[in-house]
């Protein structure tokens, strides 16, 4: 059997187990509600989930602008100025060790329990990885291309516009992909901690009343969102890097 056939088989078996184990009473329904039950709940309550998802998505979109705007700009700066990079990159990767989630209570104390806190936290959560990714990507721009452009008499602004910018596009898209994944996690985590709306809030409220099927629906929706976003970004990436065999080193989103 081919590896991918085995993978489909594994997936299929898992789905069957998901249905059979709880129904047969081998796993408590509280731990794992049957697949069919979970789907039924999702269909019945679709409006509630859709509204929560809309809240989460709109906040994630705003956070994406901040995280990627800031991360890409700062990353481009660090990537292109060697001195700044030498000075700051070690600082940034030290800061990367800090569990940023401890800052969320600071934001709720400052901005209250609303969209602002979530956006602030998610922006920060997406910022550093985007910065590091962009800086690494910018560094891979072939310096020879710049010399070549110069030999053709390209001015500084022409070099930026016609060489650096197109060369940086794959990096920017990769950063958006990474940042997008992270801001969604950031928003959902902050909703789970303290908030009053959004899919993460929904998950936590159902968890406190031990409504497992709805908890599962919420989690599955967040996963789906992540997968769809990743897929979309990948298509974009593919379109933009069609002619470049190995434009940007692949980085998986280190989502926690």
């Amino acid at each position: 059997m081919s590896p991918s056939a085995i993978r489909w088989l594994i997936g299929g078996i898992l789905l069957v187990l998901w249905e059979v184990l709880p129904r047969a009473g081998l796993v408590p329904q509280l731990f794992l509600p049957a697949l069919s039950q979970t789907i039924a709940v999702a269909i019945a309550d679709w409006r509630i989930f859709a509204e929560a998802l809309a809240v989460t998505l709109s906040e994630a979109a705003v956070a994406l602008v901040f995280a990627c705007g800031g991360g890409i700009l700062a990353g481009a700066l660090l990537g292109s100025v060697a001195r700044l990079r030498g000075l700051l990159l070690p600082v940034v990767s030290s800061l990367y060790a800090v569990p940023l989630v401890v800052l969320y209570p600071v934001f709720t104390a400052w901005f209250g329990i609303g969209a602002q806190s979530k956006i602030a936290f998610a922006s920060l959560y997406g910022f550093f990885p985007t910065l590091l990714g962009t800086a690494a990507g910018i560094q891979t721009i072939d310096a020879q291309l710049l010399v070549t452009a110069r030999s053709m008499g390209a001015t500084l602004s022409q070099r930026l516009r016609h060489v650096v910018l197109p060369a940086a596009i794959p990096t920017v898209i990769a950063s958006l992909r990474l940042g997008g994944a992270l801001v969604i996690v950031g928003v959902v985590v902050s909703e789970m901690l303290t908030s009053s709306a959004g899919i993460g809030y929904l998950i936590t409220s159902y968890r406190t009343v031990l409504d497992s099927p709805r908890v599962y629906v919420g989690i599955l929706l967040v996963l789906l969102l992540g997968v769809l976003l990743d897929l979309g970004m990948r298509l974009l990436e593919h379109a933009a890097t069609r002619h470049r065999p190995s434009a940007v080193p692949r980085r998986a989103a280190p989502a926690i």
């Binding site: 968890r207 908890v215 996963l223 992540g226």
Partner: peptide, 13 residues
């Protein structure tokens, strides 16, 4: 690449 934190409620359940 799947976010791990959203599974936290399951660990509590």
């Amino acid at each position: 690449s799947v976010p791990k934190s959203i599974f936290l409620p399951l660990f509590i359940l």
